[in-house]
Design a protein around this nucleic acid. Structure first.
Length: 593
DNA sequence: AGGGCGAGCCAC
DNA sequence: AAACGTGGCTCGCCCT
């Protein structure tokens, strides 16, 4: 049990003294309590700062009312401490505190150590590990932390239990940091941690900014899809009812089935005499579609139904009533590869179709700058494998897929057909995922033998690539782990006797360093960009793995586009040195390329 | 009633 | 049946 004593800070004098004391230390524990999870809905109530000796200063911001200019001014020492690189502020999920600090205290955080991100980095993709503060404290400090007060009411008179909880959450952070630094050092993860910590403010700013969705346009699209769905449902019900209707006097007596229930569907299709496979899964039904119109109708219905439930009214409910924008939740370390993930809603999976994307617009007077890396994973592959064929293709500015096609089909470059280029493209992308001949033949419609021949030619053409992939697969099994260019680690737990598990690890060993390096580069770009955009009114509004969407004043959109491109290219060049990194940028009114 | 899970499908 | 990697969302179904 870590001893802690807390002192409530209610006056400007007390605050000055406390901040002066805290400024002596290299690092302080930092936590906040708020009256809501949404910085646009609630208010920042407490700021807790912990010293290494276990003393915690609990600052009650209700005593420093925002409306009172004198009292607001008296918070200046706090703002200065939070903004300074030293002392390092140690927080668990610093993104949360950064958002409130920026929005309600009007200052940016500097010098961060995030115990949540550190814990995730040390876990190295172990999906069973949880990373709540209580869990992490139990794992590294062997202590129990009671989170019962976390969601209590922080708006009124605070109880002793609440204040003790607030203080305790802050006091554990410094010892936790010590343990995590040991682990980061042991596994050579300090560089990766620095990359992640540098990305906290950009992600906080991204969430705070949100993305604008034209509600009217979205509803219009919804009405169109809903009409189509109703039409398809009606037709489908009629077709399915035919079997059940025999002997029935009144057609209207028929009861509709639940079209989304596979049990009811199976029964109805059986009545119609459709030779059903053992399930109603789409890929099983597909071959029947040409002989049975009811199956074709069902597949069409499912497509429309899917887009209606996933991209319907629900996303509009995420529009913030205050900002009228969507503030999604970005998980900075969302995947073991280091990729980000996104929820509530997942704005990284909006359908690519024009009808959907055009609803994400720039507000009046603004423009969207849409910038994405050109073939970043293949460029990373060229860099890490040092394959001369790949490197030369990229350095010469030639079309890599066309060059590949010429090699594997043994034809002159200018005689490559569109189909051949398409095969080569699928192969180039598939290689990153550890594709096999079986899958490649399935994807292209080639026979297994043809697929095998082409893949053999492919790896003869790109010998260094082949060697690297084999080595990466072996290393992953041998060391039970893989790393990216930033040193990010992914551990693989598997049973060496389980052939399927081993083969998955082999594919992961090939893929993780490539996909992960792409994530590293994007995070570095977000940091560089954040620094460049600080003095402007532009803001990052979405990030989708190799794409950054920025909203900027229309009058300066072209200059902002240049900043975005420069930051992304510079980040890429820090990691990828053997080939150029290219970024394609567009300025538009809608999120459409 | 509500959590867990698989199926299906969206993004990269 | 399974199938190249990483995610999230929604549904029905199954279990408690």
């Amino acid at each position: 049990m870590i001893a802690s004593t807390y002192q409530l800070i209610n006056t400007a004098d007390e605050l000055r003294t406390a901040i002066a004391e805290l400024n002596q230390h290299p690092a302080v524990g930092f936590d906040t309590e708020t009256t809501s999870l949404d910085p646009y809905a609630g208010r920042l109530r407490l700021v807790q700062l912990a010293a290494p000796d276990g003393r915690v200063f609990v600052i009650d911001l209700d005593r420093f009312a925002a409306g009172d200019a004198h009292k607001a001014e008296s918070l200046a020492p706090l703002r200065a401490l939070l903004a300074a690189p030293r002392p390092v502020k140690v927080a668990h999920n610093a993104k949360f505190d950064a958002k409130w600090t920026k929005h309600q205290l009007g200052g940016e955080l500097g010098g961060l150590f995030d115990t949540l991100l550190a814990s995730q980095i040390v876990s190295a993709g172990e999906t069973d590990d949880r990373h709540g503060l209580d869990v992490v404290v139990a794992r590294y400090l062997d202590e129990t932390l009671d989170k019962a007060e976390r969601l209590s009411d922080w708006s009124g008179e605070l109880s002793a239990a609440q204040l003790e909880y607030a203080a305790r959450d802050a006091v554990v952070l410094l010892p936790l940091r010590e343990k995590l630094i040991e682990r980061l050092k042991r596994d050579a993860l300090l560089k990766c941690a620095a990359l992640e910590f540098d990305c906290v403010l950009p992600v906080a700013a991204l969430e705070l900014a949100g993305i604008f969705l034209d509600e009217h346009r979205w509803r219009e699209q919804l009405v169109r899809v809903e009409k189509r769905r109703a039409e398809l449902a009606r037709e489908l019900q009629a077709m399915l009812a035919e079997g059940a209707q025999q002997g029935m006097l009144f057609a209207e007596a028929r009861t509709d089935i639940n079209l989304d229930s596979h049990t009811q569907l199976t029964a109805a299709l059986k009545r119609l005499g459709v030779p059903l496979p053992d399930s109603t899964r789409n890929w099983k039904l597909q071959p029947l579609a040409k002989d049975y119109p009811v199956i074709a109708k069902l597949l069409e219905y499912r497509t429309v139904q899917k887009s209606l439930t996933s991209y319907g009214e629900n996303i509009l409910e995420e529009i913030n009533p205050v900002t009228k924008r969507i503030h999604a939740n970005f998980h900075q370390i969302g995947a073991p590869t280091g990729r980000m993930a996104c929820t509530s809603p997942n704005v990284q999976q909006i359908p690519h179709e024009y009808e959907y994307r055009r609803c994400f617009t720039a507000p009046p007077g603004r423009k969207l700058v849409i910038a994405d890396y050109s073939q970043i994973e293949l460029r990373i592959l060229a860099h890490v494998t040092e394959d001369q064929g790949f490197i030369e293709a990229f350095n010469s500015g030639a079309d890599l897929h066309r060059v590949t096609a010429a090699q594997v089909f043994n034809v002159p470059l200018e005689q490559v057909t569109k189909e051949q280029r398409d095969f080569a493209k699928r192969l180039n992308f598939g290689v990153v995922y550890g594709i096999g001949a079986q899958r490649f033949s399935m994807l292209t419609g080639l026979s297994l033998t043809e697929a095998e021949t082409i893949m053999a030619r492919y790896f003869q053409t790109y010998r260094a690539l082949d060697a690297w992939l084999r080595a990466a697969a072996q290393r992953a099994v041998r060391e039970r782990s893989a790393r990216t260019l930033s040193g990010r680690l992914a551990r693989f737990n598997f049973d060496p006797e389980d052939r399927q598990a081993v083969s998955l690890v082999q594919r992961n060993g090939k893929n993780m360093p490539i996909q992960g390096a792409s994530a590293d580069i994007l995070k570095r770009a977000l940091r560089l960009l954040h620094d460049k955009l600080r003095a402007t009114t532009a803001c990052v509004v979405n990030v989708i793995h190799d794409e950054i969407v920025v909203e900027a004043d229309a009058s300066v959109a072209a200059e902002i586009a240049k900043l975005v491109e420069d930051a992304m290219c510079a980040a890429g060049a820090e990691y990828v040195k053997k080939v150029p990194v290219k970024v394609e940028t567009q300025v538009a009114d809608e999120w459409v390329k």
